[in-house]
């Protein structure tokens, strides 16, 4: 894996007393001025504010009180239903694994806690990392996550696992292909509402945009196992694209309702694109 960490940014201030890279809410050592206090109250001469002290007519000494640069909790939720095992132009599970590994690496570089939860109809223990500062998480992901085989067609485990997430607001990456029903998606977003959620939508070019334009085949639904005979032709591809477009629009609308913005991964994952996404994100 090419180590190329993601410079994620947030627009909110994380609580907590663990020092990290984000501008937090509690007092401590940081870059952002919180208040000026008397040296008498905060006897730390290293932070003496000469300018304020000289300006004071009563010749009191002031020290700077700053916000603590706070560590964040970064959680990656990975959908492990059977559709995540799809191999088209790229191996979808490998892409999910790479995203998780890159995020783990980036979290450690920023001094943030990293947690990983993999679930389909239930939480998968072999794919779980509790959220903590974890130096080797990315290596662990690379070596262990491929042992998890995506299967099943229900994502109840993902909804349930939201209750195990940290109570304080965290940065949550939801890695999935989002082939869920609208109500499930809505429920998932609702449960994660107090977190900063980034839905990472995995797509494969061979699914729709680069699907064969003609010919016949049988497609087997990875989740339900149902087979369908398809005669690929221009009209069918058009309606297929329309359907996918509708689904994407539905996803965007739902996300907007909760203040999220989906990040599309079309094919393989490019960490730079995710960095750009954070630069552009306004919410």
């Amino acid at each position: 894996m090419k180590q190329q960490w993601i410079d994620y940014r947030i627009q909110w201030k994380p609580t907590g007393h663990q020092s990290g890279a984000m501008r937090g809410l509690s007092a401590g050592i940081g870059d952002h001025l919180r208040a000026l206090a008397l040296l008498r109250d905060y006897p730390d001469p290293r932070r003496l504010d000469l300018r304020a002290s000289l300006r004071d007519p009563f010749e009191r000494l002031f020290v700077r009180d700053t916000y603590l640069n706070t560590a964040l909790k970064l959680i990656v939720l990975v959908d492990a239903t059977a559709s995540m095992g799809y191999v088209g132009a790229v191996n979808r599970w490998q892409v999910a694994q790479e995203i998780a590994a890159q995020l783990a690496l980036s979290a450690y570089r920023s001094g943030d806690a990293f947690g990983l939860y993999v679930a389909n109809q239930a939480l998968i223990r072999e794919g779980t990392l509790p959220p903590r500062l974890n130096r080797s998480a990315w290596l662990w992901i690379q070596q262990h996550l491929h042992r998890v085989k995506p299967q099943g067609n229900r994502m109840d485990g993902l909804i349930k696992v939201t209750s195990q997430l940290p109570r304080k607001r965290s940065l949550v990456f939801l890695v999935s292909d989002f082939r869920w029903s609208e109500s499930d998606t809505n429920m998932m977003f609702k449960k994660l509402n107090h977190h900063d959620v980034i839905p990472i939508v995995l797509e494969d070019p061979f699914e729709v945009s680069q699907a064969p334009k003609q010919g016949m085949a049988i497609l087997q639904d990875a989740e339900t196992g149902q087979s369908k005979f398809v005669w690929m032709r221009a009209g069918l591809i058009q309606s297929l694209q329309n359907k996918r477009l509708q689904h994407t629009q539905m996803l965007h609308q739902l996300s907007r309702r909760y203040g999220y913005k989906p990040f599309l991964v079309h094919g393989s994952f490019n960490p730079m694109a995710l960095t750009h996404y954070f630069m552009e994100r306004q919410t």
Partner: peptide, 8 residues
């Protein structure tokens, strides 16, 4: 194999 045929 295809991820999902639900919205085919």
């Amino acid at each position: 194999s295809y991820p999902s045929l639900a919205d085919w």
